[in-house]
């Protein structure tokens, strides 16, 4: 097997992992599978595109590539604002839709169906605003650097991998070492009890939306930078994201990242060993196998 599979798999896996962290946090705390999560990824990428284009229009120097990467300062600056905008969008969707359904004590299936509706709406709005034509953050060409053992990676790819690793460690530390992380785990385990103990459950829910949206936005920007931007880019990632969240174990941040890497590597290996047409089937096969053989996932806990 060509060792390049490892780099390709890690790149895809890092994207899946970041997206899956948001899915797993939302699922463990709000108790429903949010199919609109992947649209936050698309929104974040397009928000960064619009903002970086605007910054570039204001000052062409901001589009000049920062060596050795393919993008200029406009993209990281726009990315910071896009993260905030994606967080605000997630809070707005919760205030308009999910929060009201929670208040009415709607069933899980109603929440899931509502998330489908929210996904369709967001996707259509993005397509309306940006058209379905692929878009790019940069047209700069990058030469992949040799990493040894026949593997190559571009500086953008290596930066994305490093950023994903830093974010996962950061979120893991936030959950395990801080007061808000402790409150999030308490709400995840027993929301009613957390309220009685004095945990501000509404604040925890806001933090979960902000955190999940921020990671989705960064994953979207990474995807747009390494591949391209399309209104369906989030939708196409939906199955791998859920496969990674469930394989990792619902509620487990390291699990989501590890599972994202496994799904990414499995896809890359399948492309090379079986054929590219089977790539999308891999996540589905993993999802079915996990649900049948180890429903609690790799790092999740079996329900009592």
């Amino acid at each position: 097997m060509n060792p390049q599979v490892l780099i390709d798999g890690l790149m895809a896996g890092a994207l899946y992992g970041l997206g899956a962290i948001g899915v797993t946090l939302t699922y463990s705390i709000l108790r429903f599978a949010n199919f609109a999560h992947s649209e936050l990824l698309t929104f974040g990428a397009y928000a960064a595109l619009a903002l970086s284009s605007a910054l570039g229009a204001l000052s062409a120097g901001l589009l000049e590539p920062i060596a050795p990467f393919s993008f200029g300062w406009a993209l990281p600056l726009a990315g910071l604002v896009a993260v905030a905008l994606t967080g605000l969008l997630a809070l707005a969707v919760d205030a308009i839709l999910f929060g009201r359904l929670r208040h009415r004590r709607s069933s899980i299936i109603v929440m899931v169906m509502a998330s489908f509706g929210a996904a369709l709406t967001l996707r259509s709005l993005i397509e309306f605003a940006f058209t379905s034509k692929p878009a790019y953050f940069t047209r700069e060409l990058q030469i992949a650097l040799p990493l040894g053992q026949g593997m190559r990676a571009t500086p953008d790819q290596l930066l994305s991998l490093a950023l994903a690793a830093i974010l996962v460690i950061g979120v893991h530390l936030l959950l395990t070492r801080t007061a808000i992380g402790r409150s999030m785990r308490a709400v995840s385990e027993n929301q009613a009890l957390a309220g009685v103990v004095g945990v501000d459950v509404r604040r925890v829910i806001r933090v979960v939306w902000l955190l999940g949206a921020a990671l989705a936005c960064i994953a979207g920007i990474m995807s747009g930078l390494l591949v391209q931007l399309r209104p369906y880019m989030g939708f196409d990632l939906l199955l791998p994201l859920f496969a990674a969240a469930i394989l990792g174990g619902i509620g487990s941040v390291p699990g989501a990242m590890l599972a994202g890497l496994i799904v990414g590597l499995a896809e890359a290996a399948t492309v090379q060993l079986v054929g590219a047409e089977w790539r999308t089937a891999v996540a589905f096969v993993i999802l079915v196998l996990v649900l049948l053989l180890r429903p609690q996932g790799l790092l999740g806990r079996a329900q009592a």
């Binding site: 801080t178 007061a179 808000i180 409150s183 308490a186 957390a194 103990v197 945990v199 501000d200 604040r203």
Partner: peptide
């Protein structure tokens, strides 16, 4: 520790 509220870290 879950019983301790109003910490800056929240």
């Amino acid at each position: 520790l879950t019983g301790r509220q109003h910490q800056a870290g929240e």
